[in-house]
Design a protein around this nucleic acid. Structure first.
Length: 574
DNA sequence: GAGTTTGAAACT
DNA sequence: CAGTTTCAAACTC
């Protein structure tokens, strides 16, 4: 215990609860510490280690499951979070890399951030490192999941528990108890919070809100706390309630006024972090998918199908304007994964202060790449057409001066040029290589314009890798002879290619503008109200309109959510 | 620090 | 699986 207290100088008492958003900075600093941690052997000291590793996941970009190697050796000291194992007697020489973090409450195995509430209340004593939490079990002998230590898979040590059997002397009893629990629930010792990278990963957060990535596997069942107190496991883990939850009067959902107020009353750090996240996510590319977030309990249908009944709830009343979810009961919950994406795209309250492009959920990296590929094809086709003309001219010219010796000389000269990279600019070489390696439509299409080449640079690399083409185009490359003799003609090809590419790109942009405009319009509160009105008028008499998949589908088909690029099959699809 | 509230775990 | 009890943490005073 003394050791524990000694080390506690640098270790928070409660791991998760003392993790606050400011630890983002500390996390980097922690990277310098692992060596020290690696040397820790005694249980009490080893138990401190998680604090360092857990200081890392502050940004919600992080998922707790895959730990980046950079996050360090200290992490190696922590046990696999998924299935904590009871540690054999730690004393003599326990493997340092399998220590289990000391209790982090029942959510211990996951990375946790200190909840805003605890920060606000100060019961986390955040920045002041304390010794670790100790259980106070009295009747469970620390052999049930009530006991944090037992749940975490560690011995009680220095705890305030009574009649504790969670120690070395009762190892047999511990194992029995563990076995019984596992028999009842094989996942009992697995993390309760699962990362959810595939779910709504919106780079934006509601103003002043940051959540850890993940969601509660079982979901909470809160009834009175509104899921805004640490009684709630979700809240305690600093995640939003999800569709897994069966809570009542939940206020722990994105956009919740109460929740928001909680954050605002707390620290402004969150807003700062939000800005950082917004900056990270960007409008295009990450498209709001770059930052995995917990699934939002608020579903798409809540946006479109809020009924009068639901709106009578105080929360619903206060939040309806912001398109917030009404309190959700288990019966009304829905598990439609695709809706997470929908939420990310549509459900953002209009009062979010962070700008987000209306195209954020329309354009995805895949689409951009697809566009580039198709532009390349367009350009290639144009080049091919023009190249055909030139080739005929070349053949004519060659026949006119047909001399085997001349031809060989020409060939040799060309090879020399190619090998020495003389007389052929890089773009032309690339064009030749690309057309030669493509082996398809573009094979004989001749050189590409520099602009086209820039677009297809990625494709080139990929194709070369796949085709295993020899370094540079061989002398058998049909495009090379043309190139060396008809540079002047390339200008024409370039012009045509660029014209086509730019035209195609312009069309895409126009389409995007249209989509963005539509989406922006449809996402406006006014438009949503109108849609809700329409839905209600259509669905009068429907028992549970919000849970009917048909309506969910409809919500997607209204053109707001569904990305036109998600099914883009070509430029025309844009 | 004692008492109360709360919700997960355990039990029926 | 639902309802109840037990339990310990969170919370209040």
């Amino acid at each position: 215990m003394e050791q524990s207290e000694t080390v506690s100088e640098v270790a928070p008492k409660k791991l998760a609860r003392q993790l606050d958003f400011t630890t983002l900075c500390r996390a980097s600093a922690s990277a310098a510490v692992p060596d020290v941690q690696l040397q820790l052997q005694t249980p009490s000291v080893a138990q401190q280690q998680p604090q360092i590793s857990q200081a890392k996941p502050q940004l919600h970009l992080h998922l707790q499951s895959p730990q980046p190697a950079a996050v360090h050796s200290s992490k190696q000291l922590t046990p696999p979070p998924a299935i904590p194992q009871f540690q054999a007697r730690p004393s003599p020489a326990p493997p340092a890399n399998v220590r289990i973090p000391h209790p982090v409450h029942k959510l211990s195995q996951v990375s946790k951030q200190e909840s805003p509430l605890s920060r606000q209340r100060g019961d986390g004593k955040d920045c002041t490192p304390k010794k670790q939490k100790q259980c106070n079990c009295k009747n469970s002998r620390c052999l049930k999941l009530y006991c944090e230590c037992f749940t975490a898979g560690i011995y009680c040590e220095g705890c305030n528990c009574s009649n504790c059997h969670n120690n070395v002397d009762n190892e047999a009893a511990r194992q029995d108890a563990r076995g019984a629990i596992l028999e009842r629930n094989p996942n009992a010792f697995q993390p309760k919070i699962a990362s959810s990278p595939q779910e709504s990963r919106d780079g934006r957060e509601d103003a002043g809100e940051i959540q850890a990535a993940g969601r509660h596997n079982k979901g909470c069942h809160c009834k009175k706390s509104g899921c805004l107190k640490k009684y709630c496991e979700c809240f305690q883990a600093n995640i939003l309630c999800s569709e897994n939850c069966k809570c009542m009067d939940c206020k722990n959902f994105e956009g919740s006024e109460e929740r928001r107020a909680l954050y605002h009353e707390g620290h402004n750090t969150v807003a700062y972090m939000q800005q950082a996240n917004a900056a990270i996510s960007g409008a295009i590319g990450t498209s709001g998918y770059g930052t995995p977030l917990v699934s939002r309990k608020r579903k798409g249908y809540e946006l479109y199908f809020t009924t009068g009944n639901q709106s009578t709830h105080p929360i619903a009343q206060s939040q309806q304007e912001n398109h917030l979810r009404p309190p959700m009961t288990s019966s009304s919950q829905l598990s439609v994964p695709i809706f997470h994406a929908a939420n990310a795209a549509v459900s953002r309250p209009s009062k979010t202060t962070t700008y987000r492009s209306p195209l954020a959920d329309i354009i995805q990296p895949k689409n951009v790449k697809d566009l580039c590929s198709r532009l390349v094809v367009v350009a290639g086709a144009a080049a091919k057409a023009l190249a055909g003309n030139r080739e005929r001219e070349t053949i004519d010219k060659t026949n006119a001066t047909s001399s085997t010796q001349e031809g060989n000389k020409h060939k040799m000269e060309h090879d020399k040029q190619h090998d020495d990279h003389i007389g052929v600019n890089q773009a032309d070489r690339n064009a030749s290589r690309f057309s030669g390696s493509n082996g398809g439509d573009v094979q004989d299409s001749g050189p590409m314009s520099p602009g086209t080449l820039a677009l297809m640079c990625d494709e080139q690399d990929k194709m070369f890798m796949e085709a295993g083409l020899p370094n540079g185009a061989g002398t058998n490359n049909p495009s090379l002879p043309q190139k060396s003799t008809q540079d002047i003609g390339f200008t024409e090809v370039y012009v045509e290619q660029e014209r086509l590419v730019l035209t195609g790109f312009r069309d895409c942009l126009n389409h995007l503008i249209t989509r963005g405009s539509i989406k922006e319009t449809m996402c406006s509160p006014q438009a949503k109200r109108e849609r809700v009105s329409q839905k209600e008028s259509v669905q009068v008499g429907t028992a549970k309109p919000t849970t009917d998949p048909r309506y969910q589908k409809e919500a997607y088909s209204n053109g707001i959510v569904k990305s036109p690029l998600s099914s883009a099959n070509g430029l025309e699809a844009w």
